[in-house]
Design a protein around this nucleic acid. Sequence first.
DNA 1: ATTCTATGTGTCATCGATGACATATGGTGT
DNA 2: ACACCATATGTCATCGATGACACATAGAAT
Lengths: 355, 355
Amino acid sequence: MNDDRISRSATLMQVAERAGVSTATVARVLKAKGYVSDEARARVEAAVKAIGYRPNAMARGLRQRRSFTIGHMLDAIIVNPFFVNVAHWAEEEALEHGYKTFLFNHNGDGERERIGIERFIERRVDAVLFTNAIATENVRLLAAAGIPALQLERSKTPAAPAIRVDNKVGALEAMRHLVELGHRRIAFVGGDPDLIGRGATAGPTVEEDRLEAYRSGLAAAGLSPDPALMRLGRYYSLEAGGTSSEGYRHAKSLLELEERPTAIFATCDILAAGALQAVYEAGLRVPDDISVIGFDDTIAANLTPQLTTVAQPMEDLGRIGFRAVLAAIETGDFPELPLLPSRLVLRRSTAPVAH
Amino acid sequence: MNDDRISRSATLMQVAERAGVSTATVARVLKAKGYVSDEARARVEAAVKAIGYRPNAMARGLRQRRSFTIGHMLDAIIVNPFFVNVAHWAEEEALEHGYKTFLFNHNGDGERERIGIERFIERRVDAVLFTNAIATENVRLLAAAGIPALQLERSKTPAAPAIRVDNKVGALEAMRHLVELGHRRIAFVGGDPDLIGRGATAGPTVEEDRLEAYRSGLAAAGLSPDPALMRLGRYYSLEAGGTSSEGYRHAKSLLELEERPTAIFATCDILAAGALQAVYEAGLRVPDDISVIGFDDTIAANLTPQLTTVAQPMEDLGRIGFRAVLAAIETGDFPELPLLPSRLVLRRSTAPVAH
DNA sequence: ATTCTATGTGTCATCGATGACATATGGTGT
DNA sequence: ACACCATATGTCATCGATGACACATAGAAT
């Protein structure tokens, strides 16, 4: 009822004064540890409520040398919902453990990544998650500052451990699915390992895995890859305006071939979305005339027709990723890091090859 | 070359010792203010570089009573890219001013919103942005703590000022566009003001504006709204799985009408995406058989056909929103808050009504 | 009566950066 | 000679929470 306006959040000392006890007693009540009489506890609780006391995280962090914050460095959040999802689930898990995440977008720019890492260090994050790290020397800055770092899925550098996704299982499933439907001319639209994944790398890159699965999928069906059906490039170009334009561009050129493919395997839903547009514009139909498969399972369910795609374990990446860095914070060591599976999600964009 | 491993980021005092000066001199060098001899400056700079010093933001924040952080409370980030975009641009502007944003998702849950605000207060954010505030009493918590708060676009409570978008201009443009194409049976698929926007409100809600524009758009063409063509509900249901399923469900029922609409005006791209799926499934074509318009311009360009939609000024919302709270932080007062325009973006999902 | 333990409470240095304030030096102006 | 100012540097209390430590009391055990 009363309009008691408190200009700055109160301090623990003010609570102590109001309750007529020392700061130590207030601290004991708040931490629920140590001996406190029922009477003192009641008075402290009343004072906390009366002045709306909230502990100052900066003071606590300074003293404890823990910020209860982790930095999450990621790529192009407004282009690819994959990053949003991973960030969301990492945040969710963090909250459940009393932590908070800080996001930082590098948008594919190494210099921005460096700046972001410096911000992380200044804010004394307790750990850093990378979803698509760029530069090894940036990651090393964290090691030098004694901050544990973990890469999620898109692992680009050996400078930090990684939770990887087995891109191959899902991609192979996808290829098998297409082959079973009778497809023989299957196009590949995806990231170019030489363009994207280069640099010192711990294990094969995402792009290598997907391309490799494409090749072995073909091989398993007794087919050899036709260079004319492969489009390797970037996932997106921020300048290009339309975010699916890369997929559109590639698919369009594929459809203009004399012997056009009967199926397109795109390594990202956004690329696949562009492919759907190109097919539509060419007056063809998905899946009747041409099948399309995407990757990630981000916007797949929102497209028309709903897209068959290789789903990434985004929730697991985020949650398990956070728990792993939490372990590293608390024990100094990372637990064993899993290799998470990808899997094919069947929807409406694939069908038997047209006669 | 040497593997000097520093376990904790160094302190200003360590820099001072190494440079053989006092902490005050180091501070002067870092702040670039006050008198410092060239020689001392050089020694300090060398020491900073040598030990990789980064100031501790928690210590600075504690002392200065400023965290240089603002909280951004928003809705369902993994469902609607609208929020991601606004958050992205607010963050971008914040970075340019030496600030950082903290995101918090309430997912439409008032209790979560409260928890988030408590976290914001504990971390002593200097201000809070709301993109879709829920509960007035939650917003009041901030006022009580002396923290400026600003609502972006989706304004639900009079407890904080708001930067609003003129939803009507764009929506009216959209209706005019459809009418000009000869459409008379135009369906509305959107949020229900009674379901979503209720509660103490500063001005009309987003839902009211869009519905109102629909009605006046019809009226301007001498038409009266047909209740059978209106579907008012929620924008999404997280339980439903497919995020576009609400739009799909509504559109499906519209297409089953004896006299089905020739155009659908959906108040969100995600809803429109569902409508596209329903049309496709009914064996009809967009825009030949039925026109569809969306709202927001989030995934519109990724859909097939590319969606004509009412674009929201997401970058302006984020950037101007941040600058407004920055002014509030520095001067204690908000500047005059603009009413931002929405505008129709023509793409490929609308066409003259089929004969 | 003495020692011990459980219970309850208070004092204070500490985390790291900041900035007000004090101090010191050398040159200019009168 | 003295006052004055620009230049240059150092000392220290402060922000708010924490937790080690000291102290105090009462009842139980010896």
